[in-house]
Amino acid sequence: MLARRLLVAIIAAVVTIGLWPGGTTQAADMAQGSQGASGYFSNSDTLPGSYKLYIQTGIGGGLWGLGPNRGPVKRSSFNMDPHSEVRDYNDARDCKGCHLEEARDMHTVRMGITCRQCHVSLPIAGVHQYYSPMNPIRRHAYVCAKCHEGATPSFAGFVIHEPTVLDAIAEEDFPLLYYAVWFMLILAGGVFVIFLPYTGLLLIREYAARLFGRSNNG
């Protein structure tokens, strides 16, 4: 009898707990801020120090200033219509006519995304212009999230238009990328520079040893 009551009590407890999680999860979510969030910002965006994501120039994003955006910033990137001073400009012109280097990025080259799919406004506002969809305040929500669901300001910190990684410009603009790529290239190059000739010499030596009847061991 006691065992039966105990069993009923356990089942009741399990059912109660099973029914409860809706409330518990909601409470946990509220505590994490996800229920209360606008959908544009995650909780981590409101932590101390996260404001740095929105500072627009010359901060070089963390890691002892080795991050991106160290280089000079064009004054025109703060304008509502940076093309207004460009002679013979019209909105139908091919962007690559002037911005060929900017079109050498993964979105354009590999995914076939056009410039206007991200630089959406007309006139095309400078990326640092306060109301621009490209402004770091809202870029993640207005631009990145169109394809990358749940994009955050941190995610939008991915550098789409990378400097040419081995150039001196990259050393100035994104030092960590510049040093990392050089390190990896020296590492990879070093392996081939040492081991390819070594392998060739080894094969020649071993075949020669066999052909001329000399012992491999001396």
Binding site: G62, T152, F155, A156, F158, V159, E162, L177, A188
Partner: peptide, 29 residues
């Protein structure tokens, strides 16, 4: 990448892409 950028700046993915690419080419070669 979206989840990764919750734990580190998004530009770390620029580094990850290049390091992944070069190391993979090294391994294949």
């Amino acid at each position: 990448p979206v989840l990764t950028s919750d734990y580190m700046p998004g530009w770390m993915l620029n580094l990850a892409l290049w390091i992944h690419r070069i190391e993979a080419v090294l391994a294949i070669g």
